[in-house]
Structures are given as structure tokens and as C-alpha cells.
């Protein structure tokens, strides 16, 4: 009886240890998408994604509506796929830009919903659609370079 209790205790201990290892290996070290609720996928092409990462948030006016699910290079152009919550739909005229939270913060995608007009043929973005109007990440070095270049031109 006592031996049985010991065995159960040791079994629990060892499995808890391995569950912890699994948690560390899968959740802490590698990638996996965790999005709550049902989602649909939108894609967008950028010239430069800067420091955008998989699982970075997609925000509309500061509210998180989805997450980046993958970042790939298609024909040498970065293509970002996003999982967007099914609670929200956006018109085709929406625009997407890569923004930075604070001066040194992480980068996220800012989604600007476009206009819809009755009588005009503007549909909604659906599963797998590309957002056409995108603005790339600001790269600080390029910005400084442009600034310096502009200064020297004025002289």
C-alpha cells in the first residue's frame, strides 16, 4: 500500500517534470498560433516589414482585432498573413501600415478601415484576400539618411 503511494507520487512528479519541459519547448521556445475564436485570413504585401514578428497584433484604432500568422517571401516580396477575428469585416479600400509601439517598442500592424459608398462597387475583404494599400515599416536609418541627404541638397 505504502509502496503503491510512493509509486504514484513518483509517477506524478516525473510526468509533471516532463509536462514542464514540453511547455518550455513548445510554448516558450517555438512558434504556434493561439487565437481565440473563429478567424479568417487576410494577406498583404510590403516592401519592408521592419521588425514585425509572427503573432504581432493587428490593431484598428488601438484595438486588437487579429494577429500575424505567418511572414513569407513570395517572389522576393514579403507577404504577411493575418488571422482576423470573424467579428470584424473590412471594406476593400482599407489600408494597412506597420507601426511601432513607442519609440523602442515592438512593431504591430495598424489597420485603417476604408470607406464604403452606396452605389459604388466596393466589396468586403474575404478569406485569403490581399489588402492592396500598404505602408511599409519606417526604418530609422533610412529616415536619417534621407534627412541628411535633403539637408545637403538645400545648400
Amino acid at each position: 500500500m505504502n509502496n503503491r503511494k510512493t509509486e504514484i507520487g513518483v509517477g506524478l512528479f516525473i510526468s509533471a517534470g516532463f509536462i514542464a519541459l514540453l511547455f518550455l519547448a513548445l510554448q516558450v521556445a517555438s512558434t504556434g498560433t493561439i487565437t481565440n475564436g473563429e478567424t479568417y485570413t487576410l494577406k498583404a504585401k510590403f516592401d519592408n516589414i521592419g521588425g514585425l514578428k509572427v503573432r504581432s497584433p493587428v490593431k484598428v484604432g488601438g484595438v486588437v482585432v487579429g494577429r500575424v500568422s505567418s511572414i513569407q517571401l513570395e517572389q522576393l516580396v514579403p507577404v504577411v498573413s493575418m488571422d482576423i477575428s470573424k467579428d470584424y469585416t473590412f471594406p476593400e479600400t482599407s489600408s494597412l501600415s506597420i507601426l511601432t509601439a513607442g519609440l523602442l517598442g515592438e512593431q504591430y500592424l495598424g489597420l485603417e478601415p476604408g470607406f464604403t459608398m452606396e452605389g459604388m462597387d466596393i466589396g468586403m475583404l474575404e478569406e485569403g484576400a490581399y489588402i492592396q494599400d500598404t505602408k511599409s515599416a519606417l526604418v530609422l536609418e533610412e529616415l536619417i539618411g534621407q534627412f541628411l541627404f535633403g539637408q545637403s541638397n538645400e545648400d
Binding site: 509533471a16 517534470g17 509536462i19 514542464a20 519541459l21 511547455f23 518550455l24 510554448q27 516558450v28 521556445a29 517555438s30 512558434t31 493561439i34 514578428k53 509572427v54 503573432r55 504581432s56 497584433p57 486588437v64 494577429r67 515592438e106
Partner: peptide
């Protein structure tokens, strides 16, 4: 076990209490 529980504790305080974005918490960590 210590590390796993500790990270979960940091998640509890950072995300659930202080409001760090949970996707950023895990994504930047990964």
C-alpha cells in the same frame, strides 16, 4: 518545473494584471 511555473507567474502578473499584450508576451518571448 520551476522555470515553467515561474514563466506562468510572470504571465499572470504581466498580462492578466498589468495588461501587457498576451500575443506580444508569448511572441516576443518565442
Amino acid at each position: 518545473l520551476f522555470s515553467a511555473i515561474g514563466i506562468w507567474g510572470g504571465y499572470l502578473v504581466g498580462v492578466e494584471w498589468l495588461g501587457v499584450d498576451q500575443g506580444n508576451f508569448w511572441g516576443v518571448m518565442q
